[in-house]
Design a protein around this nucleic acid. Structure first.
Lengths: 237, 237
DNA sequence: ATTATAAGCTTGTATATACAAGCGGGTCAA
DNA sequence: TTGACCCGCTTGTATATACAAGCTTATAAT
């Protein structure tokens, strides 16, 4: 009986995605949805609020809930997304090359970023991402050792996130992102196919777990032509 | 008696901002907040949910609401932000130069972007943004004439958003953003102080009103060194 | 000492009710 | 025809209650 509203949310998302419910149309009223899902109005409203928050619908007082055009707001690239999901949308073939993987003590910069002591240990993972046989992204991951005991090359080649969530049972909850543009470093030039591009898009990512503990810092360095970021922003009333 | 929860939200935001409530501490329990604000638990929870959504707190079942470090998640640059707000944070002095302002019929590209007919009219506003006496941003705005009858140079030099919300009484509700990197166009080279930069960060912005109608498309073209985007993303459970 | 259990706190979910506020269509009067 | 008003729909807000589920601490049993 738990998570009824999330179930309703997912159900409606699915119907919007596969066009069972068409863009620009209005959803059934909250009263009608109550009967469809055999639940209370508050539960329906919780589901609708999540839909609105994520850009699927727009609620208008006195009228109803208008279904937005999800194609125009194509999400997958927004928010918390892994390379695997991103690559599927971007190109034909993709591959991850683990440059190296080790445990060290944090540099000064990292100590302030991850809030660490000099004695703490961190996993350091550098990965090169290929899309259509071009090396276009350099991912530098720093993960607190406290949270992750072991980490293998194989895991890094696949998806660290999947490992952490599925194998270790830890839940990623939120992240702070910062996007800036820099000149390519020596490292960038060495590992990426820059093809004359003289800028690098740097996505700095601070990842937090469900208990609000910061456990990972990631720097994702993109060749500019392979970078795209989509965001849906709702205004505070 | 209306909007009690928004009032509570703002009150707590203020307390977090001015450090009356310190980062990493936990908020009073929902029960205690009920008494402080003399309201019901559901109302408190609504306020707390908005706080969580906007990255001010993290709720942990069984424990409480942890106050996040807002300094590390400095918002103002995220979401729906106008140049005026942005410039205040970026530099010392800023200025807006209205390149031109007119009404035309839409190009094919614009027709598809703004969902228009060939007979429709659109305002076209091109503005150059100066920060510290350098021309670093080129803003190209396209606004549906249906929604805005008149638009003056003076308004454009100040803030179109303020004009629309305060003078015309229309409410901006949400926006879809897309960030990509391009080669500078002739136009970019002509109007901006590119200083050898060979890329331009393009922020495409589709702005919607409260009734879900699309009414503006903006293309904001930034010199890469003056671009920064901060985002807070929460994962769906 | 260690472990297991229970109690008491916390937040999470589901339900019901009441009234406010916005929209739209219909009615009726001028 | 036009405008004012009302009614029935919609969503928005506030309240109360009940129980579930997660965390911490204290207590009891081994």
């Amino acid at each position: 009986m738990k998570n009824k509203y999330i179930h309703i949310y997912r159900d409606i998302v699915e119907k919007i995605r596969n066009k069972t419910i068409k863009p620009q149309s209005t959803l059934p009223s909250e009263h009608e949805l109550m009967e469809v899902y055999e639940t209370s109005r508050e539960t329906i409203r919780k589901a609708l609020n999540v839909l609105a928050q994520n850009g699927f619908i727009q609620k208008v007082q006195g009228k109803g809930s208008i279904v937005l055009d999800s194609d125009k707001i194509d999400f997958p690239v927004s928010g918390l997304v892994t390379f695997k999901e991103l690559a599927k949308n971007m190109g034909q073939t993709y591959r991850t090359i683990v440059q190296f993987l080790d445990v060290t003590h944090p540099s000064d910069e990292l100590m302030s970023k991850l809030d660490l002591e000099p004695s703490d240990e961190v996993w350091r993972v550098f990965r090169i991402r290929e899309i259509d046989d071009e090396k276009v992204i350099l991912d530098k991951d720093f993960i607190k050792r406290d949270y992750v005991e072991t980490l293998t090359r194989e895991v890094c080649e696949n998806s660290i996130y999947e490992y952490i969530e599925n194998e270790l049972g830890m839940l990623i909850s939120f992240a702070k992102k910062e996007i800036i543009v820099e000149e390519p470093s020596e490292e960038d030039r060495e590992h990426l196919d820059l093809e004359g591009f003289s800028n690098i898009v740097v996505v700095k990512n601070f990842v937090y777990l469900e208990d609000a503990s910061l456990f990972q810092y990631t720097e994702s360095r993109h060749r500019p032509d392979k970078f795209r970021f989509v965001d849906f922003a709702r205004r505070m009333k």
